[in-house]
């Protein structure tokens, strides 16, 4: 257990270091901007009180190093200030958007991992068949195809040509309100199908190939022979093999979530999905920098935390690393 604790604290330290670097870069970026640095935090259509509040929050009248410390502290505590244009705190906006993003990513992640594991396990188990070759080739080509073009194609075919599914958004106008009502509604599912399909088609490659190759390795392992000699039914042996093959997958899920969250920006634009990525693009276009820096910060933090969780999970799953 202490080895795990050690690894955990090391990872945590690294996470803090990375976050600090990211924040420093963000701080520097917004200050290196030509013109008045205060413009990032203060906008012309703000009321006098709001401007005052902003100046206080970010310490705009203080020397730069006080501003720097304040900046790090504010970000670490999720005090992002107020949006310039939306009558809301940045934190509230980001929370809503990230929920929406998760509403797209999470199903895609689950489908990719579960389906990918099953396909990969079978492909590895029955190696050499034509089906297996086809699986691998398809997976590889899907993976190297640019997902945003795939998204556009899918949209062209299924929404505009066939008119089977809505061309974008998360709900139809007048759809259900409230998070739970929403994500359990058929309307949401109909909106989810296309983007989710594109995400899965891209992200499933990792699990398929990874599970397949570790399956190939495990299939030749001595303990599989013993399981067979023990008279276990084929499916039990497959369960053993898959459990072993899953070990590397757990770490990969971390990588995958990061990829998902980034590739997400493009898909949110294409499918007009009101998530974090789309919010970032809009905020940058509107010069709503408070929202933009918050969005980048939240994305980076989420990716890092997910990686941490997955790394730790690996420690629990593989008894050898305990």
């Amino acid at each position: 257990m202490s080895r795990l604790a050690h690894a955990f604290s090391r990872r945590l330290l690294l996470l803090a270091l990375t976050m600090w670097c990211i924040l420093t870069i963000l701080f520097a970026l917004f200050r290196l901007l030509p013109g008045d640095p205060a413009a990032i935090f203060v906008d012309n259509n703000m009321s006098i009180e709001m401007i005052e509040h902003q100046k206080q929050l970010w310490g705009l009248n203080d020397p730069w190093w006080v501003q720097y410390i304040r900046y790090i502290a504010n970000m670490a505590l999720f005090r992002f200030g107020d949006s310039f244009f939306q009558n809301q705190t940045v934190a509230a906006i980001l929370l809503e958007k990230i929920t929406n993003t998760c509403a797209m990513i999470f199903p895609a992640l689950v489908i990719s991992v579960v389906l990918g594991t099953i396909i990969g396990a079978f492909a590895g188990w029955r190696r050499g068949g034509r089906l297996e070759q086809a699986t691998v080739t398809t997976a590889l080509i899907l993976h190297s195809a640019p997902s945003f073009f795939v998204g556009i194609l899918v949209l062209m075919v299924f929404s505009y040509q066939l008119r089977w599914l809505p061309p974008g958004g998360m709900t139809s106008p007048g759809g259900p309100e409230g998070f739970w009502d929403l994500i359990t509604s058929a309307d949401y599912l109909r909106h989810l199908i296309l983007p989710c399909m594109v995400l899965v088609s891209r992200e499933i490659t990792g699990p398929v190939l990874l599970v397949r190759s570790s399956m190939l390795e495990i299939k030749g392992a001595d303990f599989i022979d013993i399981l067979r000699a023990k008279g276990l039914p084929e499916w039990r042996i497959l369960v053993h093999a898959t459990r072993n093959a899953l070990l590397p997958l757990v770490t990969y899920i971390a990588v995958m979530t990061g990829l998902l969250l980034q590739g997400q920006v493009l898909l949110e634009i294409i499918f007009a999905w009101p998530g974090l990525g789309r919010e970032l693009v809009t905020a940058l276009a509107d010069l709503d920098y408070q929202v933009a820096q918050g969005a980048v910060y939240v994305m980076a933090l989420t990716i890092l935390l997910l990686n941490l969780v997955a790394d730790m999970l690996y420690g629990f799953i593989d008894p050898r690393s305990r």
Binding site: L17, L26, Q262, L284, V296
Partner: peptide, 19 residues
């Protein structure tokens, strides 16, 4: 390690829009 923690697209977008 730090470089691995930086998400590219969001970062690149911010940098480009600021310059």
């Amino acid at each position: 390690d730090v470089a691995f923690g930086i998400p590219f697209l969001p970062f690149a977008m911010v940098v480009i829009s600021l310059s």
